[in-house]
Design a protein around this nucleic acid. Structure first.
Length: 631
DNA sequence: CTAGGGTTAG
């Protein structure tokens, strides 16, 4: 070009930025003999909107300040958006000050970005204030930034009120905002209703609309609606859109139709990491970890979400060793460190295995790295410590948590109940009610567990009744098992029998096994034959059930029945592994069963045990200390 | 020639 001026230089820089060649754009930016504010703003937005160049954006902004290139509304808008993206509130506040000082606070562009910045930095009230202060003509984008802010905050009534104000302004984007807001806050049918209304009002649906609707269908597990949206997407020719196709895969997975999900994923041109991740979750939810692993291994680049998907699949299938192995692989891979979600999975595996030492290591890591103690992390630490028997540690975590939610209360209650602190569990339930946290079915499993361990028949019955009548929670089989156990342990076998007859849902092996124990402790052999039939029909492959039955007959001195059960067990080739305990000693695991003498130093161990026992007896005699504390 | 609001996976 023989004749160049600032416009042509700006044009070529713009062209390079939009073709994604940021470094060539910078080369031309540096070579340009003339620069004006457009040159700077173009380069600035090139950096700000390309991942990985954020630091350069800030550096260029500082250069502008040094060489006194004025900041105009373009500069401010770009920088506010960058600030929102980086969640850099302190920086955003300075920009806001600058806007006020230079009277740049009336242009709708930087104002809408300011609202958006405050909302995305978690300052909802400041966003509201800016919006309220920008009186005058209602600007659609600012209004919608505010609607989106309300949606983020879960304030759907406020969002709706604002959305319907000057509603003739509303366009596809603002309709999408409100629909997504409803869908993401759990109001699925409201989202559906507005989606229909949007079409009837003549507002064009686009890819964003459909993606949000698919997400709503997926949350509702409504394959019927999902298929309708799928049909529309095909008609509109949006099948290749990566948002649409990955949302379709997710929708079919969540609805349990993995076969369809695979078909969508396999159609050419739709491969993407989101779809694969959804498929991994879909396969994991069906316990199909081999398929999940195959997909995981097929990905050349794995982000944290994909790793987490596999981790949680292994935990769900209780494949704890696989979790720990995967954690080693994860830490070997370069340039990443575990986030809260991954640590939650690993803690889950520790809890299942009662692996205190690894659990403590994770806890220490969290404290050392300074990972934020969010609700879910507190819950899984509480659960891990409780399941490892360290109830005081669990209590500490629970007490330090800022916002205790239902999950955390449930975990702590179950921890108390299973570690012999029944009264604490009940106290916590009352505290939960005082804090206006609604109990759910899981809360009542923990609560009734506490009652059955403490033998509190009346209290247990009171809670069992209130569950349905006060809280509208239908008892499930676990709740019935708790009650049967409660009656069994307190010599109320007749009540247990009555309850067994009245249970309106299908009986499982757990409730039959519990009832069997009730028969045993109440020395009632007459009912056992019927229990045996049911129990061995439901769970014929569980060796523990045969042993349990054989022991009941043995307790009665009924040796012929006992031999019959033992014979059945051998005939069915059912095995029962002996229950065992284990210790971690210098990175080795030592396991032992009751009365085990297989250890090379068994003699020494048992002689130490008997002298400890003698010590305890001596202490018990000399003081009033309860023996239970030491055993 | 430069700037604003809405979409997918753990």
């Amino acid at each position: 070009m023989p004749q160049r001026n600032v416009f042509t230089w700006n044009a070529i820089i713009y062209a390079y930025i939009h073709s994604g060649d940021i470094s060539q754009a910078r080369f031309l930016f540096d070579s340009a003999p003339f620069k004006d504010s457009v040159t700077y703003n173009s380069m600035l937005s090139g950096y700000a909107n390309n991942p990985g160049f954020e630091t350069q954006a800030i550096e260029l902004f500082c250069v502008m300040q040094e060489n006194e290139t004025p900041f105009d509304e373009f500069t401010l808008t770009t920088m506010l958006n960058l600030t929102a993206k980086l969640s850099a509130l302190l920086f955003g506040l300075q920009l806001h000050c600058y806007m006020l000082k230079t009277a740049n606070d009336s242009n709708p562009f930087p104002v809408s970005s300011l609202i958006d910045m405050y909302s995305k930095c978690g300052c909802f009230s400041d966003a509201l204030q800016v919006f309220g202060g920008s009186s005058g003509v209602m600007d659609l984008v600012s209004k919608n930034a505010m609607v989106a802010a309300c949606c983020r905050e879960g304030e759907m009534e406020r969002a709706s009120e604002l959305f319907w104000k000057v509603s003739e302004l509303n366009d596809t984007v603002s309709w999408n905002t409100i629909i997504t807001g409803y869908a993401q806050n759990g109001y699925f049918s409201k989202a559906l209703e507005l989606f229909v209304q949007m079409g009837m009002n003549g507002i064009r649906w686009n890819e964003h609309t459909f993606t949000s609707m698919l997400s709503a269908c997926s949350s509702m597990r409504s394959e019927k609606h999902g298929r309708e949206v799928h049909a529309w997407a095909i008609k509109k020719g949006w099948s290749l859109n990566s948002y649409i196709s990955s949302s379709l895969v997710d929708m079919y997975c969540k609805c349990g139709n993995i076969a369809y999900a695979e078909v969508v994923n396999a159609s050419p041109g739709t491969e993407n990491a989101f779809s694969i991740t959804s498929l991994i979750v879909g396969h994991s939810s069906k316990g199909n970890m081999a398929e999940a692993r195959k997909l995981f291994d097929s990905l050349s680049e794995k982000n944290l979400v994909v790793w987490t998907a596999l981790f949680s699949g292994y935990v769900r299938s209780r494949r704890c060793e696989a979790v720990f192995e995967l954690f080693l692989d994860f830490n070997k891979a370069e340039g990443q460190s575990p986030d809260a979600s991954i640590l939650i999975s690993v803690l889950g595996a520790c809890a299942i295995q009662a692996a205190l030492h690894p659990g403590k290591q994770i806890h220490t890591y969290i404290l050392r790295i300074g990972i934020e103690m969010e609700d879910k992390l507190s819950s899984s630490l509480t659960d891990m410590y409780a399941k490892c028997g360290h109830i005081k540690y669990a209590e500490n975590i629970f007490c330090q948590a800022l916002n205790r939610d239902r999950v955390m209360y449930n975990g702590m209650m179950a921890g108390y109940a299973h570690n012999g602190y029944e009264n604490e569990a009940i106290r916590l339930f009352e505290e939960m009610l005082e804090s206006r946290i609604k109990p759910d079915g899981i809360t009542f499993v923990a609560l009734l567990s506490a009652c059955r361990h403490a033998g509190l028949v009346e209290v247990g019955e009171k809670y069992f009744v209130s569950m349905k009548e006060e809280y509208g929670i239908l008892p499930e089989i676990d709740h019935y098992s708790c009650m049967v156990d409660l009656y069994g342990r307190t010599n109320c076998l007749e009540k247990a029998v009555e309850l067994m007859k009245k249970i309106p849902i299908e009986l499982d092996a757990v409730v039959w096994g519990t009832f069997l124990n009730a028969c045993k402790t109440n020395r009632n052999a007459k009912l056992v034959r019927e229990v045996e039939e049911n129990l061995l029909t439901i769970e014929s492959d569980n060796g523990a059930r045969y042993v349990q039955l054989a022991n009941v007959y043995a307790a009665e001195g009924n040796w012929s029945e006992m031999c019959r059960i033992r014979g059945k067990m051998r005939g069915g080739e059912v095995k029962k592994l002996a229950g065992c305990s284990w210790l971690y000693i210098e990175n080795r695991i030592i396991t032992f069963t009751s009365a085990d003498r297989s250890h090379s130093q068994a003699e020494a161990i048992y002689s130490m045990l008997s002298s400890l026992y003698a010590e305890i007896l001596k202490m018990k005699k000399s003081s009033n200390i309860k023996l239970r504390q030491y055993l």
